[in-house]
Design a protein around this nucleic acid. Structure first.
Length: 552
DNA sequence: TCGATCGGCGCC
DNA sequence: AAAGGGCGCCGATCGA
């Protein structure tokens, strides 16, 4: 397959470096304005575009109606290679290392603010690509690491396409929802009438005439003055006590949250032309999960999802994986008993059926505890039992926790490495053993050590789950393209949302059933890519709906 | 006055 | 005695 490295040069010129082995090795210089046509032409045969950073190239191509099949995102690949235990890091070292380390993705606002001086332009993508390929070739885990790099780059393409397309959003539906719950939109600086009324109720119930219910400290003082035994103002805490102020306070908090997180200001800021426009950031989380910036895209409350509505004549296909992380744990640990439980569409029910635990609730709380590191309470009590039934699965997360406590790196199935701990406890653990110290400090160190162990314990599972999801997305993206006939990305079935273990596809109605089928096939492919023939299933809940809220 | 931090809560 | 992983974002509050 041809491999073409793109590089920006000054004065609106782009160089295309066709690498050895390509049909016509050499360098082509072309005006930036002609890039889209060049890329479109070359896409008629298999080609891999190599570029410094997808966010610096792909949005303009998409805007010109050009979709690419595959790329290598050097920024994301560099970040993976810097941390993976599967690579010889000396092979990645070069003059530019610090620059590649520091390279940040671009968002639409960055581009407008800093159009001229981009640090990416001081980096040499041809040299970096050669280094990365040398690292991969020398890796003892070439195939897993290669899969991770390919998946990460595909994810970058998906993210750019989703960011460009936006999530269909009906501002009128959203506004009606706000008005129904909060009252009419108030003038700037004023509370909606419903909140004002609740605030008065709270003040009356607590005998605190001036109370600002938005101030946690003031609310706490008022509650304590009224004689309530609380140390914070969390909803869960308030639900435990009986007082006339509690009901209006809980109602106030719920509605105030809606107002501040997804109220009229949110609509003004993030919804344009019938689309919620956020920015997805692949690799934005150390574990490999995506992050997003703008509008809180990854924490969209169920409450406002009715406003996500497919276009006229289009549908959403919403799919999510049930219990992704325990399934991934079964696969990566090769735990046959847990994989057997995972054969059920409800893994927790599968654990009950096999006699491992008594109830579904026990199964769920026990597995969450195993993956998050709960050692006591209901979760902790399940651990001995789970360890007996699922020795390999539980052993894997326990070992990841112990390694973290020793200050060591752990890694996902495909080789994403955890960061090294920064605290003093880790320096001492690795270099000096246990120094004598004041009791206070030792307790503090132990607390941090255990916290880091919980992080590495979760890292291996969350990170491998993210790898499964990346493979799912990448394969689905190609399947959707092949379904679609002609036209640009957003004129065909295309991804509009991704949330760790859930996807939303926007599709012309007549293709919805086909999309649902491809979503399932892509999940099978992802399972095979990660776990080969090991029999662990990833069943999906798939819904064809008009509004996101109708799914699940 | 403005940036950093806190308490809280939404999602997985 | 407390002991649960990862995020983004808000208003209030603190502090330079």
């Amino acid at each position: 397959m041809d491999r073409i490295v793109l590089r920006r040069r000054g004065e609106g010129v782009v160089e295309a470096h066709e690498q050895a082995g390509s049909a016509s090795a050499g360098v082509v210089a072309l005006p930036a304005a002609e890039l889209a046509r060049y890329v479109r032409d070359r896409e008629s045969a298999p080609v891999r575009w190599v570029w410094d950073d997808t966010t610096r190239w792909y949005p303009a191509l998409l805007a010109a109606g050009v979709r690419v099949e595959r790329c290598t995102d050097l920024r994301l690949a560099h970040a993976v290679l810097r941390r993976t235990p599967f690579a010889d890091h000396d092979l990645l070292a070069g003059d530019d290392t610090a620059g590649w380390d520091a390279l940040q993705p671009e968002t639409a606002t960055d581009a407008a603010l800093f159009p001229l001086d981009d640090p990416a332009d001081r980096l040499d993508p041809v040299a970096e690509d050669e280094r990365q390929q040398a690292v991969l070739a020398a890796s003892p885990e070439r195939s897993r690491l290669g899969l991770l790099l390919a998946a990460e780059s595909s994810g970058a393409l998906v993210a750019a396409e989703m960011t460009a397309a936006g999530l269909p959003w009906r501002a009128d539906v959203h506004q009606r929802l706000l008005t129904d719950l909060l009252g009419p939109r108030p003038p700037a600086g004023h509370r909606p009438v419903v909140l004002e009324r609740l605030a008065e109720e709270i003040r009356a119930a607590l005998g605190a005439a001036e109370l600002n219910p938005d101030s946690p400290a003031a609310v706490l003082r008022a509650l304590q003055t009224a004689g309530l035994p609380v140390d914070d103002t969390r909803s869960w805490t308030l639900e435990q006590v009986d007082h006339p102020a509690v009901a209006p306070l809980l109602e106030y908090k719920k509605l105030a949250r809606l107002l501040s997180a997804n109220g009229w200001a949110w609509l003004d800021a993030w919804v344009r032309d019938g689309r919620f426009r956020s920015s997805f950031l692949p690799g934005g989380v150390v574990t490999g999960r995506w992050a997003a910036t703008g509008g809180g895209a990854l924490s969209m409350p169920a409450q406002v999802r009715p406003a996500a509505v497919a276009d006229e004549g289009w549908r959403f296909v919403v799919a999510d994986v049930a219990q992704l992380e325990p399934r991934v744990l079964a696969g990566m640990s090769g735990d046959a008993a847990m994989a057997e439980a995972a054969r059920a569409s409800d893994l927790y029910q599968g654990m009950v059926a096999s006699g491992a635990v008594a109830t579904r609730a026990d199964a769920k709380v026990g597995m969450l505890g195993a993956m998050y590191g709960a050692t006591r309470g209901e979760s902790g009590r399940m651990m001995p039992r789970l360890t007996r039934r699922y020795p390999r699965a539980i052993g894997l997360v326990e070992e990841a926790a112990r390694a973290g406590e020793r200050g060591e790196v752990v890694h996902t199935l495909l080789g994403r490495g955890s960061p090294l701990p920064a605290g003093a406890w880790a320096q001492r653990a690795v270099d000096l053993g246990e120094p004598p110290d004041e009791g206070d400090h030792r307790e503090d160190r132990d607390r941090r050590r255990r916290a880091w162990g919980r992080f590495t314990r979760n890292f291996v599972v969350q990170g491998t789950g993210a790898e499964w999801a990346l493979c799912w997305l990448a394969d689905l993206r190609n399947r959707l393209w092949r379904l679609g006939g002609t036209g640009r990305v957003e004129q065909r079935p295309h991804l509009v949302f991704f949330l760790h273990d859930e996807v939303v596809v926007h599709t012309p109605e007549h293709l919805a059933a086909d999309v649902a089928e491809e979503v399932r096939r892509a999940a099978v492919t992802a399972g095979r890519l990660l776990f080969g023939d090991f029999p662990v299933d990833f069943p999906l809940d798939v819904a064809v709906v008009g509004s996101w809220a109708e799914a699940g």
